[in-house]
């Protein structure tokens, strides 16, 4: 469950989230070793990581906010900017490219009215490219909120979009 943008803006870590993070930190050899676990926990609850949240997470990890951001900005599954309610990851790697990635991209951008890397104005979708999803035998593929969709064509794309209000 991803919070709305408005909710995100005011969210600080709930006790539940914090204790989950502390457990991840406790399970690690060194606190900073849990940096990605903590970032991914934050992602799971809040979708993206604001500067304020980054600071809070840094305290938990005994890192400086800059150190944590250095890690956060390296990985593509950590979002440092607000995202839509749903995140579409479109595979643009070679097998999908051969099998029709261009069509998928064109369909998606046309349907959503946004380009890759953008969020729809109503905050419903964020559209991002992704490297090979390991579904090359069922290309082209994409992933919405962690759910994999394969053998895409225009109709299936339209259908899938419908499923995510």
């Amino acid at each position: 469950m991803i919070l709305t943008r408005e909710e995100q803006r005011h969210s600080t870590l709930s006790e539940e989230v914090r204790s989950e993070m502390l457990a991840a930190v406790a399970a690690c050899e060194r606190k900073r070793g849990a940096a990605l676990d903590v970032l991914l926990i934050a992602k799971r609850y809040y979708g993206w990581i604001s500067d304020e949240m980054l600071r809070e997470l840094a305290v938990i990890l005994e890192m400086s906010p800059a150190e944590l951001d250095s890690v956060a900005t390296f990985y593509n599954q950590i979002y440092r900017k607000p995202i839509g309610r749903h995140v579409i990851l479109v595979c643009d790697s070679v097998s999908c490219w051969i099998m029709g990635y261009d069509l998928v991209r064109v369909r998606l951008t046309a349907r959503l009215g946004i380009n890759l890397g953008q969020t729809t104005p109503d905050g419903r979708f964020t559209l991002l490219p992704i490297q090979c999803l390991g579904a090359c035998d069922q290309a082209p593929a994409m992933m919405v909120d962690g759910e994999l969709f394969v053998n895409l064509d225009a109709t299936t794309i339209d259908e899938i979009i419908q499923r995510y209000p």
């Binding site: 400086s64 800059a66 150190e67 951001d69 250095s70 900005t73 990985y75 593509n76």
Partner: peptide, 9 residues
């Protein structure tokens, strides 16, 4: 120092 770092990829 802890306020200068490398960001991005």
């Amino acid at each position: 120092g802890r306020d200068l770092d490398v960001f991005g990829v």
